Amino acid sequence: MMNETISSPNTIQDFLFQHRHNWTDYNVPFEDGRELEKLILSNKYKNVLEIGTSSGHSTIWLAKAVAKTGGKVITIEIAKGRFEKAKRNFEQAGVSHLIEMKFGDAMQIIPTLKETFDFVFSDATWSTQPAEGYTTFFKLCEPKLKIGGFYTMHNVTDGYGDDGRFFKYLEQLGTYKTSIINVSHNGISVSKKLKNINP
């Protein structure tokens, strides 16, 4: 039996503060992690999907939030080294029990997921995906996102994320309301699902 300490949110917060300047490998800044937590808590979201774990900084923030709402996080990472590093970070932070890790290509994994979600965080990097990849991720997730849920995406103001095609696509759909959070230079888009897409 694995001997893992189940942490309270305060202990998770201690871990995040102690390591706040040590994250590399495309992890989100501390300020953005805190915003993700606020979004989940303010809407009492429980079922969270993350595309792009990296070494787990944002995932720990998401797990900290669902520890309070009674939910769980499914996170997907394609790079083996980052996946293994994230696993160790989750164990140290005491959040492994809140996270289901999946290793592989999100474009192949997402269609296999049986769950529905009320919060999706897309943080896949531009360098590893085709130009239309951000819209493709959204199209895969959209049927699994509940009405009233948020589809969020990182790196929307720093030149590393979508080139504008994703937001044009959302505007054409007319079923989402989008805003941008600018607590860091990276930017987080928050798109609320207002209704289902007409068939």
Rank of each mutant, 00 (worst) to 15 (best):
41 L>Q: 12
115 E>N: 14
131 A>H: 10
119 F>I: 08
116 T>R: 10
197 I>F: 06
88 R>K: 13
154 H>G: 00
150 F>A: 04
3 N>I: 07
57 H>K: 13
73 V>C: 02
68 K>C: 08
104 G>C: 02
97 H>C: 00
96 S>E: 06
160 Y>R: 15
106 A>R: 05
187 G>R: 02
109 I>Y: 06
66 V>K: 13
104 G>K: 00
60 I>F: 10
123 D>V: 10
136 T>R: 14
181 I>W: 04
116 T>L: 03
39 L>N: 13
71 G>I: 00
13 Q>P: 10
87 K>P: 00
179 S>N: 10
87 K>E: 14
27 N>E: 09
49 L>C: 11
78 I>F: 09
151 Y>Q: 03
182 N>D: 14
160 Y>I: 07
113 L>A: 08
27 N>F: 03
45 Y>M: 10
126 W>Q: 13
69 T>M: 02
4 E>V: 05
20 R>C: 07
188 I>L: 14
35 E>K: 10
122 S>I: 13
151 Y>L: 03
176 Y>V: 02
198 N>M: 04
40 I>A: 08
12 I>P: 01
96 S>C: 03
105 D>R: 07
5 T>P: 04
87 K>N: 13
116 T>E: 14
92 Q>H: 09
144 K>E: 09
25 D>Q: 11
140 L>A: 14
156 V>Q: 01
108 Q>C: 03
70 G>S: 10
14 D>I: 13
42 S>K: 15
162 D>F: 00
128 T>Q: 14
51 I>T: 04
4 E>R: 04
2 M>K: 07
106 A>T: 01
161 G>W: 01
101 M>N: 05
23 W>R: 05
117 F>P: 08
152 T>Y: 00
63 A>S: 14
114 K>G: 12
50 E>N: 11
134 Y>H: 14
63 A>K: 02
162 D>N: 12
17 F>M: 15
117 F>G: 09
76 I>F: 05
174 G>W: 07
166 F>C: 10
148 G>W: 02
188 I>D: 06
70 G>N: 05
101 M>Y: 00
27 N>L: 00
161 G>S: 08
149 G>K: 00
147 I>V: 15
23 W>Y: 11
27 N>T: 05
101 M>T: 12
46 K>H: 12
196 N>T: 09
180 I>V: 15
178 T>C: 11
114 K>P: 04
1 M>L: 02
61 W>Q: 01
69 T>E: 02
134 Y>M: 08
53 T>C: 12
